[in-house]
Nucleic acid binder design. Structure first.
Lengths: 213, 213, 213, 213
DNA sequence: AATGAATGAGGGTTCATTCAT
DNA sequence: TATGAATGAACCCTCATTCAT
């Protein structure tokens, strides 16, 4: 599975769709980086301009507002962050028999999401601050979470439960477990990077498997 | 971004003036509330003054700086948030026999921390934003976490492991599991408050127990 | 008749009512002067601040907006500019016999308004520009004009017409004549100040009298 | 505020390039319209460009400056506004006997100027604002007024006075009367359009006639 | 101790103007 | 020739902080 770096992806997308010039790309990249380093409020548009090597006026040529810089920079990451890898193979599955075993599913999902988050930490940090600071934004995130994850993952859980691979815990509980495991792997790696990410993922999967059985 | 060691600063401040006048208390409460509602940067000292019912000058009588307001407000919570309830009974224990069973330990620790966090959400939200935005602050938090928790909890885990109540997972892994479970209970309750907090705690404990055995 | 200088009047009023500090008075005076000299848009708040000898922040202490400076500065003049001197003696008159002859009425009204306008040119210039540039403002002025003048002057014209002192021209026409004469006196004096204002007024009255008879 | 002699500049510009390309015409028309609708300062060159359906660069292809747009747009109107209709027939007159009677002269002049102003209100509004805001411009207008009108009209007034058709008022006074009557007709029509313009003109002429006799 | 007027640096944003394409 | 991306100075306004009263 090729791991997507959203910044890279974003460049591809925007090159086609929105026709962001290279300078505006630089603006977007610089702003996202600075936002994650110093926080949105602590970053001035002057900072962004000089970090991107453009004039302050250029910052506003494409992005009408400092806020749009945040939104446009975060958006593609947020569109993806909740899209579990589950979706990909769920959509390819024709019969229930083709669904992999619990271990393989967890392997896929957890590893995929951990790497995604790890590769997009700047944008995700920025989004997280926004969740804590902006109530409306937070509610949108919750909504996003509900529809994008819960509804997506529920059928999968049902099948696994039917096959007797997971115990009788609620869907919400199961998702909380998997999500918090993913997050704890990333956070743990930030705190203590002596353990390799792969090992942390493996250990996390063991824990989840035991808890779900 | 001030390069002050905040943790140290907390201690000094709390040591000096435990007795805040009623107006100063009002200022502190108002600021913490506003910080958590709108974010630190979005809250002006004028906002704080009028919310506290004092003049803007008065805000600066005791707190020399807007930043100190944040620091002073967060400090006592931060001093406590990592101090697991474990500490309390650990210090009272004279022999190993007196340590409760795994289930009871988890019950105590998880329930205690969940309620504490739930009761101090404003300050914790503010602190979390600070962690995401201020690298120095984040590092100090990590340090705090290490010394205050890991070292405190490790002996307990050793004993439980010796007694065969938990499996052979690393201390770090165990702490990650418990911590992330605590957080997922609180976050889950914010997202979906249909399930009672007590039920969520009970379910969380079941999961942790299974994973640790 | 004591001729009111609105700037002076404004100072008195605001000293009592709005408690404008001396610095804010300076701000108001400076801004009105600069607006009339260079135009509203051409005057920066920095200009105002330094002309008033205060900091730019002080400009905004009382007046929340640059626009308020304009409105608050113009308002008292506008409240007066349409209040013909007619009002004063009209309100004191008990019987129709007491109304002076046409010549004296014109003398009073024209002289009074000419001097008023002459003494308050800065504010009136600013207001005039605003009428030309801001449609809403213009409509308010027209409304002001209608209620404050037309209705006030109409009864007086009726009486004079009944007494046979003025011919059978419409009220609107008569008011247009008097108003335009007042304005032409002031404008003419700006263009050609070789003729004294008093002579211009006298000549204007002659013209109006002839036209009205 | 540019210190350019605008009147002179007008002439030069008009002399050079009488033939504006269609795009340049569009730019000029759009700018004049926008200036009169929103004011010169409130109109951005971007507004003008999009209203004219051209790029912002094209706006600057012909007009080197935003100010030139104003100047160029106002110029032809200003060249005309003070050129009384009097000029036309004055130049055709060979003997004094051919000069029409006072009533017909007033009829011609007033009606002609009122309609001209009415048909060119946008440009005239813009010019008027400029007079109020730009001292140099105002002085040049006054100069224009003096030479173009006073000198033009004076001989006519002399003849009429010799013929006993007008009383012994000063030329300046007579011109003020006629001018202010013209303006009051237009302004009155803006305020109260229930009366037809033709009726207003007729009434105005009556007033002027009476005042001049 | 408490007030709030005053400060002035700095923020986000606009806009006339230029110039490479 | 026409475009529109790029510029950067200037603008209005906010806000943490100070200090005379």
């Amino acid at each position: 599975m090729t791991e997507t770096n959203l910044i890279a992806l974003f460049k591809q997308l925007s090159a086609k769709d929105d026709a962001l010039s290279s300078k505006q790309q630089a603006v977007l990249n610089a702003s996202l980086l600075l936002f994650s380093e110093k926080g949105f409020e602590q970053t001035s548009t002057k900072d962004i301009a000089s970090a991107a090597g453009v004039s302050e006026g250029t910052v506003y040529k494409h992005f009408k507002t400092k806020n749009q810089l945040l939104v446009k920079g975060i958006a593609p990451v947020l569109d993806n962050v909740f899209q579990s890898a589950v979706h990909e193979f769920l959509s390819q599955i024709t019969s229930r028999d083709k669904i992999p075993k619990l271990h393989d599913v967890l392997m896929l999902v957890i590893s995929n999401r951990v790497h995604f988050i790890q590769n997009n930490l700047p944008a995700i940090k920025v989004a997280l601050v926004q969740v804590l600071v902006d109530k409306t934004f937070a509610e949108q995130m919750v909504q996003h979470f509900r529809t994008a994850i819960v509804e997506e993952v529920k059928p999968l859980l049902s099948i696994l439960r039917e096959r007797g691979e997971i115990c009788n815990i609620s869907d919400f509980q199961a998702i909380k477990l998997i999500s918090s495991t993913i997050i704890s792997i990333v956070v743990g790696y930030q705190i203590n990077s002596h353990v390799s990410l792969e090992d942390a993922i493996a250990e996390g999967i063991v824990v989840v498997e035991k808890a779900l059985k």
